[in-house]
């Protein structure tokens, strides 16, 4: 060690972080492949399609980044989406007779969706932080419960939104500002806020501290349980937000709504470079992860080189690859 008294040299200004660039490179490669395989790939219509479909996963994945960074996990987000969408539709349908086919009904439905998300997240968070049950167990349980509830609510079939109310609601998914659809705009806003919160606020710092070493965080005046709890509530609200955007897309909810979304959400977070074991999170990485997963799906659909049925297999390979790369980083440190 240098024997200079109390001085610490600064490292050279430019540092080339290959690990951080990995996901971006993968994204660029995908775009190139997509363009080579199909000239329509970069057409505005296709890009809009990919992005607005990715927005649901993306919005949830930003929340999931905080949960995982703080050392938690939430497996229930997919079936929570289905459950919230189902309740929203039932609430709105029930209000039509008294309030008519109006924006008022839709706003109440949206409010119910967000509130329900907050409550569902709070229940998960309460069981995990106050009752001390492992996050995996709690959210595995709530995942199955939500899925079962939505199946029961739909009586095994589909819950459909009143057709004319659905037409009124449609612009929330298909409409937008300056030709950019609302889901994309909202995803972007959520991602930017998330990135700022993670990197530049005490809250993000506290999440990383808790995920790294809960005891050190506790001894350093961090309210460990409160911070953990809020990560689940924020995620719940974001699941509600995703549902609010999802309902006008199909106008229905069923047993298969949001199926496996929890896995896609977690995968996006991990591909983006966040450590599954907690302690380090990267929101922009999560956004890249979401885009990677969305593009793979899209490329397989646009070309007939590989069957789209193999989408899952390719995603799986990429998830494992991402973790292998993380491992390499850890051991090189």
């Amino acid at each position: 060690m240098a024997d200079t008294t109390g001085t610490v040299p600064k490292k050279g200004g430019f540092r080339f972080d290959v690990q951080a660039l990995g996901p971006i490179l993968a994204l660029v490669v995908l775009v190139v492949i997509g363009t080579l395989l199909n000239p329509d790939f970069l057409a505005g219509r296709n890009i809009t399609n990919v992005l607005s479909r990715s927005a649901f996963i993306g919005i949830m994945a930003v929340g999931m980044t905080f949960v995982i960074t703080a050392g938690g996990l939430d497996l229930s987000v997919g079936s929570m989406t289905a459950f919230i969408a189902g309740i929203m539709i039932m609430v709105m349908n029930a209000l039509i007779p008294s309030l008519g086919t109006t924006w008022g009904v839709i706003l109440i439905g949206m409010g119910a969706g967000l509130a329900l998300g907050a409550v569902a997240g709070a229940v998960n968070g309460f069981l995990i932080t106050r009752m001390g049950i492992e996050a995996f167990i709690v959210t595995l349980g709530s995942m199955v419960i939500f899925r079962s509830l939505v199946t029961w609510m739909a009586d095994g079939g589909t819950i459909s939104l009143n057709f004319s109310l659905g037409s009124l609601y449609e612009p929330v998914y298909y409409g937008g500002l300056f030709g950019i659809r609302w889901p994309i705009i909202i995803f972007a806003v959520v991602a930017i806020l998330g990135e700022i919160a993670m990197r530049h606020t005490a809250y993000g710092r506290h999440c990383a501290a808790i995920g790294s070493n809960e005891q050190v965080a506790r001894y350093s005046a961090v309210h460990v349980k409160r911070v953990r709890m809020t990560t689940y509530i924020v995620l719940g609200v974001l699941v509600g937000l995703a549902s609010v955007l999802y309902v006008p897309r199909l106008g229905s909810a069923s047993n298969s709504t949001g199926l496996l979304w929890e896995l896609e959400t977690i995968a996006a977070v991990i591909i983006g470079g966040t450590l599954l074991s907690g302690g380090f999170g990267r929101v922009w990485g999560t956004v890249v992860g979401v885009l990677i997963l969305g593009l793979i799906d899209n490329i397989l659909n646009l070309t007939d080189l590989v069957s789209p049925y193999l989408n899952g297999a390719i995603q799986g390979v990429i998830i494992i690859l991402a973790v292998v790369l993380q491992r390499a980083r850890k051991s090189s440190r």
Partner: peptide, 14 residues
Amino acid sequence: IGEFDIRAPDREVL
């Protein structure tokens, strides 16, 4: 670093 004479190879060291 100055006050408590902390010695480290660089500022980013874990």
